[in-house]
Design a binder for these strands. Structure first.
Lengths: 327, 327
DNA sequence: ACTTGATATGTAACCGGTTACACATTATGA
DNA sequence: TCATAATGTGTAACCGGTTACATATCAAGT
């Protein structure tokens, strides 16, 4: 790899001049510029970002902290973040924390010492003494933070309401629900919204983590203890998929005997049989907005904290019965 | 953030001594060491990796180049890579290329100028003039490279054979197949293995990309043009999921009327109804091995090129009929 | 007593950029 | 014509580490 010194030599100028043409600032004569550009081309020079980083104290790196990329909600988010970051010349460093404080902590110092320019955080610690004292620009994604940290979330409460209303509109009268991990506030809101509309039409409810295996157990419990019900809202699509599978195992027909609505709008929902009706979060959009916000924080040095709330929508597929199309 | 100079001052030693205790090399007296350690603790000093990087020309970063993290095969791979990297003190930079040469190219220079220590490549270009001339340590994952680049792949040919044998053993007599994108060599091998065993028992075959939507179209075509068949092998699990969905739409019972085997062993396979029998690649293991190999290349400066071939296994779920358990 | 090797520590160069500052040279305006 | 501003360029300091080298002390060996 060529260095700026070699370029300078070849172009018969000083390193300062080379740096000026690279960064397009300061005065440079037309001849000098041309000579430098030729030298750059000939040597295939690309400036060393580490060296630049040392002086400028910016790295062009943003840290992405998530619980587990393997959870099907996150890849889309990561993709959106990476896309936007890349479009602006940034790279993203991926960090899986498994919601473990120790891992998170160690990533945090690693990221800081490598001078990342900002952080996007999608982990859901209730107890995190970490972030507040960090001076890095950062935005929380799908996650509620107490203090003055920017956040991008979608409207879980409204989503829960929408799910309940939809089931009711589609003719369900006995509602059931499987909620997510109770410490996740964004997820709890979905449950709150659902329950507020369901009222005493709720006949059964349980909770589950977001792993398929546990969801399957939760579904079994729900069927065992509260059957019959004819409308079910799951706190996310993975849980809904488990419900669907358990339903066929029990010869419960979906949507004729039981209507099901999931939450998230991940691709998995298209792949189940039948395809899953769900409350879609604008996942890609959330990632995009979070990243754009972060870049504003980094580059424009914005200071006011903002919370961005995105609307959710109903994606009707085939686990609910369309009004006026009853089978 | 404290600097080494501040630590040195506080401990009444020179920066050299501080550096020596940090890196545990050279001679340091017990008293000096202790003073330095106390100063480090008091200042919460963590060395600036950028500065270190500039001198040592290593960054502790490894670049992960994949087509699209959104494709459900990749998150597990990414996870494995990240885990192993992290255990060894490395971070990973995520790059989605969409198989576009331009994007790949631009990532490559970005990664080089930031001095990543190595590369893991899971893109499947047939034409890539890039990598060979790079002097970075790198390993290809799930991807076949001509020249002297290390690779970790699983035994697709044997997997294809295994799929065919399993279907045959389970009583299928009229076989069908949906292959993957034809330019992907690792995927083509699955088809080869399957066809070699299937022989003239194959009654129909088509191809599809790995997106669910296209897979659905391919499945429809196959049913339209070649039905009936009673055993189907799909080049990956996403395609298999599409087949399953199309089957219920046509009131084809799985596995009674049609047995289906997928490929990959991603979690999606557990979530379909019924759960999918599939040829499992050791995905996490592949990521792990690739990363370990890369770290050997980086740290031990190994030079001999190695190709690691991992075995696949049959994961029997409910889209095939167990021998001796015929329904 | 004197050489020698091990131990201990500091100074300064270096990694490859950026930029403050000094110093020219040329253009502009009165 | 001359002061002043705009333009153009190089030198060297700086970012925060690592390490070669010089130097100093001390114990061991002869």
């Amino acid at each position: 790899m060529a260095t700026i010194k070699q370029v300078a030599k070849r172009a018969n100028v000083s390193v300062a001049t080379v740096s000026r043409v690279m960064n397009n600032n300061g005065y440079v004569s037309a001849e000098a510029r041309e000579a430098v550009e030729r030298a750059i081309a000939e040597l295939e020079y690309a400036p060393n970002r580490v060296a630049r980083s040392l002086f400028t104290k910016t790295s062009g790196l943003i840290g992405l902290i998530m619980p587990d990329i393997t959870n099907p909600f996150f890849p889309q988010l990561a993709r959106a973040i990476e896309d936007v970051a890349n479009q602006h010349g940034y790279q993203v460093v991926l960090c899986n924390t498994d919601e473990q404080l120790a891992k998170e902590q160690s990533y945090l110092v690693a990221l800081q010492t490598m001078h990342v320019d900002g952080l996007i955080i999608t982990t859901n610690h209730s107890d995190n003494p970490n972030y507040e004292k960090l001076e890095l620009p950062m935005v929380a994604l799908d996650r509620i933070v107490k203090s003055g940290i920017d956040a991008v979330i979608s409207d879980g409460y409204e989503g829960g309401r929408l799910a309940a209303e939809t089931l009711l509109n589609c003719g369900a009268t006995r509602l059931a629900h499987i909620g997510g991990p109770e410490q996740l506030q964004t997820v709890k809101r979905r449950t709150d919204g659902f329950l507020d509309v369901a009222g005493d039409r709720l006949v059964g409810m349980t909770h589950s983590s977001f792993t398929f295996k546990e969801a399957l157990t939760a579904a079994q419990t729900l069927f065992d203890e509260h059957w019959p019900f004819d409308g079910l809202f799951a706190a996310n699509d993975v849980i809904a998929a488990a419900v669907l599978q358990e339903a066929v195992r029990r010869n419960v027909r979906v949507p004729q005997d039981l209507q099901v609505i999931g939450y998230d709008g991940i691709e998995l929902g298209e792949m189940t049989s039948p395809p899953l009706t769900t409350i879609s979060q604008p996942i890609y959009e959330m990632g995009r907005r979070a990243t754009e916000r972060l870049l504003d924080l980094i580059e424009k040095k914005e200071t006011v904290t903002k919370e961005i709330l995105l609307p959710v929508t109903l994606t009707e597929r085939q686990t609910t019965i369309r009004k006026g199309h009853d089978t």
